[in-house]
């Protein structure tokens, strides 16, 4: 029998080049950062087990899982709404991993490990909203899409889980995008093109912030 050695790699490994991109005669208006090495588990309630899942989630994470399009954070985890009776559990690598969570939710939900199936891209900066408006039909005005707002939507015809994180220390907004691995490079290049005129600072984080 063949022996396999599995090595997980970022789908943006080749496309991402850390440094400045696009317009140089302006102060960088956008930071595009890929975040690597996270655990991402999809949790979906089983038939008739919605209430049971809700209480199991509160017991496990210390916060209630979102029942509407929002992202809620506790000290070591972010729970992101992804549809009726389902949410994503995002944490640092090894924190809320599949083998741990599958025990906690074995009675109420079906789980699917998406840790290496998605790329996580963070779009931040003074021009982030303007740039995303080119690609998304979601209303990102601060009153319509405040911190913690989330959406399962499409950006440039690509399905994403999208939410607004806490503002950066300099007060600029942060938008997070989880995209399927096989679409990540295409979306990344689209984002680079949309952001180029504002001056882009491309970064890489080896750990969830």
């Amino acid at each position: 029998m063949a022996e396999f050695s599995w090595l997980s790699r970022s789908p943006l490994e080749h496309a991402l080049v850390v440094g400045a991109h696009g317009a140089r005669d302006v102060a960088s208006g956008i930071s595009l950062t890929e975040v690597r090495n996270f655990n991402l588990i999809q949790i979906m309630a089983r038939r008739g087990k919605g209430a049971e899942l809700a209480s199991a989630a509160t017991a496990r994470f210390g916060v209630a899982a979102p029942a509407v399009p929002k992202a809620v954070s506790a000290s070591d985890v972010t729970l992101i709404w992804s549809g009726p009776d389902q949410f994503l559990v995002l944490s640092k690598s090894g924190k809320h991993a599949m083998d741990i969570l599958s025990h906690a939710f074995s009675q109420s939900a079906s789980l699917s490990d998406q840790s290496h199936a998605r790329a996580l891209i963070s779009v931040a900066g003074a021009k982030a909203r303007t740039m995303l408006a080119k690609l998304s039909s979601i209303d990102l005005h601060p009153t319509a899409f405040p911190i913690g707002a989330a959406a399962a939507t499409s950006i440039d015809h690509t399905s994403v889980n999208f939410w607004r994180g806490n503002d950066r220390p300099d007060g600029q907004p942060v938008f997070n995008v989880l995209v399927l691995a096989s679409f990540a490079e295409s979306l990344w290049r689209t984002m680079l093109d949309a952001a180029a005129e504002y001056g882009v600072d491309i970064g890489l984080s080896e750990e969830l912030g």
């Binding site: 979906m44 038939r47 008739g48 087990k49 009726p84």
Partner: peptide, 13 residues
Amino acid sequence: EPAAGVGAAKVGA
């Protein structure tokens, strides 16, 4: 409105 069966957790709850 949601089609029948959407939100599996609600069915039979």
